[in-house]
């Protein structure tokens, strides 16, 4: 699947299109980000998500949804926004300077400018719909409460 998405994405980037991929669960982003990396140097990946998705491997696979941005964390300028759920093992991978936790975002609005300042010119945005509070977006694989309400996130 990762390779199939990688190739399909590449095909349209090559044609100079503004490529948008919609799933499906978050593991589809692994191949997608790989394709954008093939064409853009110093790529920023902006991830809007309730979960860190930084596991190197999960349930025997490096291509599980729980590993969606592990590769990106090693190969791109990864900025994580809205995070409120993760395993302790992911703390060894996560870059605190570029991670905006939901509980901190709720208290302080400066995260928006700070995150934007950390971006390079080429930004790939990956949105896991569970970044929205489960009252807004209940129909996801792993809904998560305690954040993040609509308009403010769209404003960002």
């Amino acid at each position: 699947m990762v390779d199939a998405v990688h190739q399909a994405t590449k095909r349209y980037i090559k044609k100079n299109k503004f490529v948008t991929i919609f799933g499906g669960e978050h593991s589809i982003s692994i191949g997608t980000i790989r394709a954008f990396r093939d064409y853009y140097t110093s790529l920023t990946v902006l991830q809007l998500d309730a979960h860190a998705d930084l596991r190197k491997e999960y349930q025997g696979s490096k291509c599980n949804h729980a590993c969606a941005v592990y590769e990106a964390s090693r190969t791109t300028n990864l900025i994580q926004v809205g995070i409120r759920s993760m395993d302790v093992i992911e703390t060894t991978v996560l870059d605190k300077e570029k991670t905006y936790f939901a509980h901190e975002m709720a208290l302080d609005d400066t995260w928006m400018d700070s995150a934007i300042d950390q971006m390079t010119d080429n930004v790939f945005i990956t949105i896991d719909l569970d970044v929205f509070d489960h009252s807004i977006m209940p129909s996801t694989g792993t809904p998560s409460q305690e954040a993040y309400f609509g308009m403010k996130l769209w404003n960002f």
Binding site: M1, V5, A8, T9, Y12, K15, K17, F18, V19, T20, I21, F22, G23, G24, E25, S27, I28, G141
Partner: peptide
């Protein structure tokens, strides 16, 4: 703009 659907679960 190109939209690529990936109906994968």
């Amino acid at each position: 703009i190109v939209l690529i659907p990936v109906p994968y679960d």
